[in-house]
């Protein structure tokens, strides 16, 4: 029970801190950086559901991110559609493209899937780069509007944008929590462990993988769309492979296949990057080997390392105490508590 209390407090503390952060710092630059990391986190969560929980490494997520961003940009700038309608449409367009690609890509496995999606990502990039009449080509799109007002609430200043992005991030996390802690989540994990086994226990792997891919691209698209309206300018570079690598790195350092991983990894790396500004384009000199070392020594990242460390402690503690109550009960109340925290 203590572990769950712990988790509950951590979640509550995180939300409180996130809400209070702008008031605490009063520094617009910090607010800007954290808002940006929140946007990345949403994309990383999308990737995590697919690569972490279902075992399919997509290397096309920068492409989907860019599709979300460009959809929003084109719909608002060129078509003049209302911002919120454009935001919803951007997510739907991205998921739809995800669905189309998934129908073919998910017939492939492992290496083929990774290579296939790498190429899909490149195709998306090339199309954005070359389709000048719509995307503005290499010059990109400028003048993307900030989110339009909802009643009296305006999203013109950094502070309100921060809270808007935080809202979407919390929404994403709640969704992820509920998906992962459900029969659907267990189904995805079963597919990751062994697709053959999953199939022989009656799981339609193709259908489930498709659902995951669509969801995953939905969040990539949402992140992209928010990015576009936050930065207000987009160029084809946001669809390039380097962005996929960034997302992957945030995920891996934090912990692939864990719920807290995307937050930890993104915050840490974005923060570290700020201190490595002098390195600029050379930051990969540090992050490249870091990524490789992490995958060799800590395949489940920081969060995974903490888990296994706790597990060892737990085992020691267990030997001394009696065997706990039914953990089924624990889990039920645990997730109830979590639900309350996240909705409150």
């Amino acid at each position: 029970m203590q572990a769950f209390l712990n988790q509950k407090t951590i979640t509550a503390a995180f939300i409180l801190l996130a809400v209070a952060f702008p008031i605490l710092t009063q520094n617009n630059y910090f607010i800007y950086i954290v808002t940006l990391s929140f946007i990345w986190m949403i994309g990383v969560y999308g990737l995590n559901l697919l690569a972490g929980y279902t075992g399919y490494l997509s290397l096309a997520h920068a492409g989907f991110f860019a599709v979300g961003a460009y959809s929003l940009g084109i719909l608002t700038v060129k078509a003049g559609i209302n911002y919120w309608a454009a935001l919803v449409l951007a997510c739907l367009i991205t998921s739809f493209i995800g669905l189309l690609i998934g129908l073919i890509a998910l017939r492939t496995k492992e290496h083929f899937f990774a290579i296939y999606t790498l190429c899909v990502g490149y195709i998306l990039y090339l199309v954005i780069y070359n389709w000048e009449s719509i995307t503005g080509g290499v010059r990109g799109l400028i003048g993307i509007p900030a989110p339009s007002n909802i009643g009296p609430i305006s999203f013109q200043n950094p502070l309100s944008q921060y809270y808007l992005v935080l809202f979407f991030l919390l929404f994403t996390i709640l969704m992820m929590y509920r998906i992962v802690h459900s029969l659907s989540g267990r189904t995805f994990i079963a597919i990751r462990n062994s697709e053959e086994l999953a199939q022989t226990i009656g799981i339609s792997t193709m259908k489930n993988k498709l659902v995951v891919l669509v969801l995953s691209t939905f969040f990539a698209g949402l992140a992209g769309a928010l990015y576009a309206s936050f930065i207000r300018f987009i160029g084809p570079d946001i669809g390039y492979i380097t962005i996929t690598f960034d997302l992957l790195m945030y995920l891996l350092v934090g912990g692939i296949g864990t719920l807290a991983g995307p937050i930890v990894g993104t915050l840490l790396l974005v923060w570290v990057s700020q201190y490595l500004q002098f390195l600029q384009d050379y930051r990969m000199l540090i992050f490249g080997p870091l990524l490789t070392l992490i995958i060799i020594f800590y395949p489940r990242g920081i969060v995974g390392a903490i888990y296994s460390w706790k597990m060892k402690l737990g085992k020691k503690a267990k030997r001394t105490s009696d065997r706990g109550k039914s953990s089924g009960h624990d889990k039920g109340t645990g997730s109830m508590a979590e639900k309350k925290v996240e909705e409150g």
């Binding site: 080997p289 990524l291 490789t292």
Partner: peptide, 14 residues
């Protein structure tokens, strides 16, 4: 199988 691919990407970036 996901790991060696990611490691390879790390080397590429470096």
């Amino acid at each position: 199988p996901i790991h060696d691919k990611i490691a390879a990407i790390g080397i590429l970036l470096f």
